[in-house]
Structures are given as C-alpha cells and as structure tokens.
C-alpha cells in the first residue's frame, strides 16, 4: 500500500514537531526571563504542529482522500534535474570565497544556461562573460557592495 500524500505530510509534520520540541527543551533558562519563558511559545507551536500532523495523518489514512497532488506524477528526471541545479547553486556558495565573485558568477551563468538548454558555443560564453561583467559593475561599483574578491 502506498501512502497518500496527506499521510506522508502528516508524518513529516509529526517529525518536525518532535525535532522542534526537542530543540525547545534545549533553550537555556535565564533569570531575566518571564513567566512564559523563552521556550513557552515554541512548545505551543510544537504541540500545534503535532496536532496538524495527526490531523493530516488521519485524513490520509482513514479517509484515504485522493488529492490533486496525488495525481501529480512528476518523472524522476524532474527531481534529478532540480537536484542538479541545486548542486550548481551550492557550488557557487562554496566557490565564491575561493575564486571570487566575478569568476563564480560567470561560471554560474554559463553552467545554468547550458544546463537549462542553451547550446554551448560562443553565444553562451559571451553571455556568461558579459553577464558577469554586468553584475560585477552593478553590485561592486554602482552599489558599492564588497563582493568576495577571492584569491585575487
């Protein structure tokens, strides 16, 4: 039996509630605090989330209500491509302090355009380089933001 999406979401909500509650118990007590306490509202939110999770689980298991989302059948490829794009963004995050902003933003522009379907060639390379120059001028010069320079 495959779980309906409501049931899966309910389980996620319950897990989230549990983890968040555990986090709330870790909040240190302070003599500067009030009667509600720094952990008071988080505990309430965790219980609320648990209730919502239970409701969703119940709806998914007992009523087994079919939802629109259950009909959404995305091919595995969709998720893989999203993951790959996320990988490129994480690479940008990691590489910026090393290579510097102008280089990484050019790499990001080039690789994402290529991945999204632009044909590799001079047009793509030119767009990436000019685009990077444009962003660099806009943020570093016009806005005066100290973008990471990297090893330069």
């Amino acid at each position: 039996m495959t779980l309906s999406k409501d049931a899966v979401l309910g389980l996620i909500a319950l897990a989230l509630a549990g983890a968040y509650y555990a986090g709330a118990t870790q909040i240190q007590a302070s003599l500067l605090s009030d009667a509600v306490g720094a952990d008071g509202v988080p505990r309430v939110l965790a219980w609320g989330m648990a209730a919502v999770g239970a409701g969703l689980l119940l709806r998914g298991l007992v009523w087994r209500r079919k939802t629109e989302e259950d009909d959404e059948t995305l091919p595995l490829r969709h998720h893989v491509r999203a993951l790959a794009l996320l990988g490129m963004l994480i690479a940008y995050l990691v590489l910026t302090p090393v290579l510097g902003y102008p280089v990484t933003v050019a790499l990001l522009l080039g690789s994402v355009s290529w991945f999204a379907g632009a044909r590799p060639g001079t047009a793509l390379a030119a767009t990436a380089l000019l685009g990077a120059g444009f962003f660099w001028v806009m943020f570093t010069w016009a806005l005066g933001i100290p973008m990471p320079a990297g090893f330069f």
Partner: peptide, 21 residues
C-alpha cells in the same frame, strides 16, 4: 528561457549577499 533562469539565479545569489555581505 535558459538565459533567463541563469540570470534570475545570479541576481538572487548577488542580491542576497548584498544584504549583510
């Protein structure tokens, strides 16, 4: 579209950094 996606993401990456470096 390929270029648009790339530029939007580059804009997001640059703009977000600009808030607090």
């Amino acid at each position: 579209k390929p270029y648009l996606i790339a530029f939007i993401l580059a804009l997001v990456c640059s703009g977000v950094f600009a808030i607090d470096q």
